[in-house]
Nucleic acid binder design. Structure first.
Lengths: 108, 108
DNA sequence: CAATCATATAAGCAATTGCTTATATATTTT
DNA sequence: AAAATATATAAGCAATTGCTTATATGATTG
């Protein structure tokens, strides 16, 4: 998949506040099953399921099946295209701005 | 405006490939008038104008009028909400990942 | 196997988006 | 002031999005 397409997918996926809230909650919890995410959510179970699919398709979360539960966790590499892209604009910020692109590669 | 709303606006604005291409072109050129952006664009003048409005509303570009031309340039601070938000996930990458949030504030 | 629990998919719908063509508003030039 | 140039706005439209309810699939339990 082209890099620009991946970036578009990541941006589109995170742009929706409800979906981003799901992502943030997974990040806070470390690992959480879909059921847990539905509880305390403003939207229905299918809506959460659809958001999880979008997050997975964008490479932003990974899942681990345990019996009938599916536990979700953040997939840090999914943010890669975004970090890379922002890296192109780091000079707009400051010379002391870390080279995100390099750090990303080192952390693999 | 709430922080989450600003972030949503920035993400939504950058998520569209055509609009992001406009942003990237402005960044490459340093400063460029709307006319210049329309030339070599796949979309019409009104479409470019609408994208420029969206970018301005999101705080991602600034403009400078010179006669009947309006010159656009990147507004680095517009990326702030995105940098801040990503900063919350830096620990997912590496401890050596720079503290983007702090650097952002220092660069003001 | 039947009932239950967890998650996913289908279908439909209102709202939003990004584009187009047509037209309006500035600003400059002649 | 009239014509030309640069940009913005209006209106309309097809495509996409995010949600809902209803139903299907998967996995466990009794």
């Amino acid at each position: 998949m082209p890099v620009a397409t991946q970036l578009t997918d990541v941006l589109k996926t995170l742009a929706d506040p409800t979906r981003r809230a799901v992502f943030e909650r997974i990040a806070r919890e470390g690992e959480i099953a879909a059921t847990g995410l539905v509880q305390g959510s403003k939207v229905s179970q299918p809506a959460v399921s659809q958001h999880l699919r979008a997050l997975r398709d964008a490479g932003l979360v990974a899942e681990r099946r345990e019996g009938r539960h599916i536990h979700y966790r953040i997939a840090p590499k999914g943010l890669g295209p975004l970090i890379d892209w922002l890296g192109h604009y780091e000079t707009f910020w400051t010379e002391r701005f870390a080279n995100l692109e390099r750090l990303l590669k080192e952390s693999e």
